[in-house]
Amino acid sequence: MAQALLNGLVSGFLIALPAIALSLTYGILNFANFSIGAMITAGAYLAYFANATLGAPILVAAPLAAIGLGLIAVGVEHGVYRRIRNADHITLLVASMGVAFVLENAIRFAYGADVRALDVAVARPLAWHGLRLNHEQLVIALAALSAMAIVAVVLTRTRLGRAMRAIADDADLAEVRGIARARTVDWTWALSGALAALAGVLIALDGIVEPLIGTNYLVSVFAAAVIGGIGNPFGAVAGALIIGLVEEVSALAVSTTYRQGVSFIVLILVLLLRPQGLFGVARIRR
């Protein structure tokens, strides 16, 4: 049980990164980015490209992937979302699904469906009072925590973060206050892309690189974001920890293949009982 809690915590850290990414773009652009799963996958493949193809060590490959996906996300914003900003947000949802489809198939085009692995040394797990912590888990926890700390500092202590929160709160008023919306949106996508890429790399560290790794986390990520009150990045972290713990603890009873199924049920329960999330305010159809 304690081991399950520990695993759940680590897995929650992992889910938190894309959940934050999703919440950031939701808050500022007011639509759910359905390409988040494909973005995770793309991040893993970018790291794979830098690591296995170019031969960069993983400590270099991971930031490269984050920067690369950040740039791709900004490119997609300019090429797609910005051009349909005046349409309703349903159109944006559908567009993000289209983006996911293009990304996924671009990856398959480049790398096929073969299962690959990053070139990283395998270390022995750490043991402590009967609890085991894999080396990868430790890396995941540390990397995710640092990323979350950076996001928290950016959001609360920097001009960019205030601009992002101001736009999320009231986009018109933000413009009236002199905030350049387009530029802030670009930075939001860059940050969102970097977080998704980091998540992809960490998932790949723990296992393998294949075209579905992002999709396999999609339900958990959305469930985490909804629990946290979608659009609220801090809530998303809490939601991710809850989802991570529930998934791991439920694995004691249900087959681990049903992780996402468990998240789905949690998602439905939250929507029925507390759609505004545990910490947020409901966005009722207006």
């Binding site: 759910a32 947000h89 949802l93 929507l271």
Partner: peptide, 21 residues
């Protein structure tokens, strides 16, 4: 039914998650 009173995004999320399940 689960997302009836909520904004469209929630139905999109739920149906996608359902399909994964």
């Amino acid at each position: 039914l689960a997302t009836l009173r909520l904004r469209e995004d929630y139905l999109a999320i739920t149906t996608l998650a359902f399909s994964e399940a």
